[in-house]
Structures are given as structure tokens and as C-alpha cells.
């Protein structure tokens, strides 16, 4: 299994956000997307998730039956961006069990909450939680449904150091079991075996297909 992007270009309005971005992420490895604000890190994540149709190029998941076009790819992805997709009126367990039943089976809810360091908060309404706690419940969402590709955008922004470390452990475990992670972040996730993709916001930048602005450098 391999997540492959080929000469991706995405437009927003009249503006081309990036152009000619290529990458290949095999199972068990992470791609860390770096770059200054406005360079299109979030846009790239959204394009992989299928929310933004690419103006050129394509993303696909090789070695996965029926995963050719963007919308089928999305079925194998988890998406964790700035919003936590939690309903404050529902309890934490209600939130997670809904996503589990809607998206597919995975880890038990109580076990997932334990993994993010929030055991026993299942029957508290999500609206009562702090920003960091909500974030950790959102991370638990990635666990309650098993999907191979995790697309995460600034996953640790609201987390303290201890929780950030816990998230890095979760990511490592996911990679260890053959998963793929694409992370857009400023912060160091502490992933040793990560590939890096540096975006810069020079519009019309044309990197060479297998290097340049879209470096996929294995450590």
C-alpha cells in the first residue's frame, strides 16, 4: 500500500496555491508537510481528503482495491483538522460511538479514551471539556474507526507537552501497524522515520517531479 501524489496542483479562486507537488508515502511511514503560513499545507491535506478537486495531477492509494478516485480514497482516510467534529450537547461516548457506527469499526471507545489519557469521561457532555480535552477526544475518533491513512492538520496545536507526546506515541503505533500519516505541522511530532515535504509560497514555483520543492527525503 502506498499513498501517491503526482504533480498535484490546487487552485483556490483564481490563485494557484501550489503546483507540481509529488510524493509517495509507503505503508508504515509518515509524510510531514512543512512550510510557512499560506504555503498551502492545509490545502494539500484537504486535496488529499478530496474536499478540493485538484486542478492538475492526482492522488491515489496504490495497492488498495477500488481506491482510484478521490472520493473512494476518502473512505480510507481519517481527517483531523482545526475543528474537532464534536457535538457539545452529546456526551463524549455518544459522540464517539456515532462516528464509530457511521464510519466503521475500530478500537473500543473506552480503550480509545484511555489511549488519549481521558479514561472514564465517556458520560460527560463534550461541551464541558476544555479545548485540549476536546482535541484529545477528536484524536480518539481516529482510533475508534480503523482507517489506514491519517490526514492531520496541526494536530497538536491545542495540546500540552505531555498530550503531544502521547499523540506522537499513537501516531508511531499507527505507523508500526502499517498505517500512513500525512501531517501538516509547525511543531516537531518527534517522528524519526518521517519523510518531509517542504512547501513554499512562491506562486508558480515549479519543482522538478522528484525533488525540488517537493522533497520526499527518507531519513
Amino acid at each position: 500500500m502506498q499513498l501517491v501524489g503526482e504533480r498535484l496542483a490546487v487552485d483556490r479562486g483564481d490563485r494557484r496555491i501550489f503546483d507540481g507537488v509529488s510524493f509517495a508515502v509507503p505503508a508504515g511511514s509518515a509524510l510531514v508537510v512543512t512550510g510557512p503560513n499560506g504555503s498551502g499545507k492545509s490545502t494539500l491535506i484537504k486535496a488529499i481528503a478530496g474536499f478540493l478537486p485538484p486542478a492538475a495531477g492526482s492522488v491515489r492509494l496504490d495497492g488498495m482495491a477500488g481506491a482510484d478516485d478521490g472520493w473512494r480514497l476518502a473512505e480510507h482516510c481519517h481527517y483531523l483538522a482545526h475543528d474537532n467534529a464534536l457535538k457539545g450537547q452529546l456526551t463524549v461516548a455518544e459522540n464517539l460511538s456515532f462516528w464509530q457506527r457511521f464510519l466503521g469499526p475500530g478500537l473500543d471507545i473506552e480503550a480509545a479514551l484511555e489511549k488519549v489519557g481521558l479514561p472514564g469521561i465517556g458520560d460527560i457532555p463534550a461541551g464541558y471539556l476544555s479545548a485540549g480535552q476536546k482535541r484529545r477526544v477528536a484524536i480518539a475518533r481516529l482510533l475508534v474507526t480503523a482507517r489506514p491513512v491519517w490526514l492531520v492538520d496541526e494536530p497538536t496545536a491545542a495540546l500540552d507537552a505531555a498530550s503531544g507526546k502521547r499523540f506522537a506515541d499513537i501516531v508511531r503505533k499507527h505507523l508500526g501497524s502499517g498505517g500512513i500519516v500525512v501531517a501538516a505541522t509547525h511543531q516537531d511530532l518527534g517522528l524519526k522515520a518521517a519523510r518531509f515535504l517542504a512547501l513554499d509560497n512562491a506562486a508558480g514555483h515549479h519543482p522538478s517531479p522528484h525533488g525540488g520543492g517537493a522533497q520526499a527525503a527518507a531519513a
Partner: peptide, 12 residues
Amino acid sequence: MRMLAAREAGGA
């Protein structure tokens, strides 16, 4: 009580 429980659960 629930808010208190939320505050105490696993730090921040």
C-alpha cells in the same frame, strides 16, 4: 459536578 469531573479528567 460533571464540569468538575471534566476539569479533573486527565489534566487540561
